Amino acid sequence: MSAGQGSAGNVIAALCSFFIPGLGQLVQGRVLMAAVQFVLAALLWLILLGWVIHLWSIIDAALFKPGR
């Protein structure tokens, strides 16, 4: 699936990341980025800064362009 920015695929991925950081990246097939964002969010939520990674995960999934 070659979806551009703002595509339905990116919107779905961003929604997935809204609920679980990194899930949108996993849906997009970006396993390493999904793992990084999930682990960082989990660690930072322990010190109440997980929302930073959570927002990064949502924005990253929404703005992803395949091939870059």
Results as ranks from 00 to 15, higher is better:
S2Y: 11
A3Q: 09
G4Y: 12
G4C: 13
G4D: 10
Q5F: 07
G6C: 05
G6N: 08
G6L: 08
S7L: 13
A8D: 13
G9E: 15
G9W: 08
N10K: 03
N10H: 06
N10C: 02
N10D: 00
V11D: 02
I12M: 04
A13L: 12
A13G: 05
A13W: 12
L15N: 03
C16Q: 13
S17Y: 03
S17I: 08
I20L: 14
P21D: 10
P21H: 06
G22V: 11
G22P: 13
G22K: 09
G22M: 09
G22Q: 10
L23W: 10
G24W: 08
G24A: 05
Q25R: 09
Q25E: 15
L26F: 13
L26A: 04
Q28G: 02
Q28P: 01
Q28L: 12
G29N: 04
G29Y: 05
G29L: 08
R30M: 01
R30H: 07
R30D: 01
V31Q: 04
V31L: 12
L32H: 03
L32N: 04
M33P: 10
M33I: 11
M33K: 15
M33S: 15
A34P: 06
A34S: 15
A35D: 01
A35M: 13
V36E: 05
Q37W: 12
F38P: 02
F38Q: 03
V39L: 07
L40E: 13
A41G: 08
A41D: 02
A42V: 08
A42K: 01
L43H: 07
L43K: 02
L44H: 12
W45Y: 10
L46E: 06
L48S: 15
L49W: 15
L49G: 03
L49H: 10
G50F: 10
G50I: 14
G50A: 09
W51G: 02
W51H: 02
W51F: 14
W51N: 01
V52P: 07
I53C: 09
H54K: 00
H54T: 00
H54Y: 04
H54A: 10
H54P: 07
L55K: 01
W56D: 06
W56E: 12
S57G: 14
S57C: 14
I58G: 00
I58M: 01
I58T: 00
I59K: 07
I59L: 15
D60Q: 02
D60I: 04
A62Y: 15
L63A: 01
F64W: 15
P66T: 07
P66Y: 14
P66G: 13
P66I: 07
G67P: 08
G67N: 14
R68D: 13
